[in-house]
Simulated assay, not measured.
Amino acid sequence: MSKAFTKEKDAEDEEIDLPALLLGGKNYITPQGYARLRSELLDLIDSERPKVVEIVHWAASNGDRSENGDYLYGKKRLREIDRRIRFLTKRLEIAEIVDPGTHRGSDQVFFGATVTYIDDFGQQRTITIMGIDETDSRESQVSWVSPVAQALLKAREGDEVTLSTPAGLRLLEIIEVGYPA
């Protein structure tokens, strides 16, 4: 078969790997995180994609596509949108919605907990354990599969847990555990 009829994959056409899930494939997410991802998916399908399709259609009707920036950029943007739609669809299909408010009043660390701890260097930190697809490190949110979250899960206020880091083992003392209303 001639090479002229084979499609070569561009680096940009390759699928994005999903963030790793633990064995068993659980994808825990808060109701707010699920709603945010679903809203993004619906916006891409109902609003963003149709706009880009319209631009690409208009650009294609202008003639020569090889040097048509609107057409080339539009096709690239369509691939990005379609990739994001596939990603969101896959993640929402396997999502398990967990309401952290059900543990309110508990002193044990579960999914959705806001945990204040002191490490063995005397630094106090407060983190919130969230789903893989909804974490924001600027908001001190960590994924429930992260090493620090795995060390803290199921521990209680006052407990000391061991965190394995590349620099060695660290001791974390849990000061406070809280849940949203």
Results as ranks from 00 to 15, higher is better:
R170L: 14
V177Q: 09
R79P: 00
D43Q: 12
K3D: 12
V115Y: 04
R86N: 13
I85L: 04
E80A: 13
R83P: 00
S2K: 07
D46I: 03
P147I: 03
P100K: 05
A20N: 09
M1Q: 04
Y71W: 13
G24E: 04
D46T: 08
I97Q: 05
I175D: 10
G131M: 06
R170D: 12
K26V: 00
M1I: 04
T162Q: 14
Y117D: 08
T116G: 03
Y34K: 15
A95S: 15
H57L: 11
W144G: 00
D107A: 10
A4C: 00
P100A: 13
D17V: 08
R79V: 07
V148E: 14
S143H: 05
D99E: 12
T89S: 13
S66D: 13
L23A: 15
R36T: 10
F111I: 05
L37Y: 01
K75V: 15
L92T: 03
S66M: 12
T30V: 06
D70M: 14
D136K: 04
G168K: 09
I29L: 13
D120S: 01
E173I: 07
G69A: 15
A35R: 11
F87P: 00
V177H: 08
G33L: 11
D82A: 03
E40G: 05
S39C: 06
L37R: 07
G178Y: 00
D120Q: 02
H57M: 11
A11Q: 04
D46C: 08
D46A: 14
N68P: 13
F121Q: 15
E67V: 11
L18D: 12
L163Q: 07
A4R: 02
I97G: 06
P50D: 09
T116M: 08
F5K: 03
V161M: 12
E96W: 05
E160R: 06
R156C: 05
D82N: 14
T102C: 03
R65P: 02
P180Y: 06
L169P: 03
E48A: 13
Q32W: 07
Q123S: 07
D43L: 11
K7A: 07
K76V: 04
T162P: 02
E80S: 13
L88G: 01
D120W: 01
A95W: 08
R156H: 11
W144E: 12
L41A: 09
L88W: 01
S140G: 02
R83A: 14
E48W: 00
Y179P: 10
D43T: 12
T135G: 00
E12S: 13
A11K: 04
P166C: 14
E139H: 11
K154P: 02
L163H: 08
A11H: 02
E67T: 12
G131V: 04
K75A: 08
D17H: 10
Y34M: 09
W58T: 10
T165Q: 07
R36I: 05
L171M: 13
Q141E: 15
T135F: 13
V145Q: 09
D119G: 14
V52W: 07
L172Q: 07
Y73T: 11
Y73G: 06
L72I: 15
K90H: 06
I118S: 04
P180D: 07
S66C: 03
R91D: 02
D43E: 13
G33F: 10
I174D: 05
L78F: 02
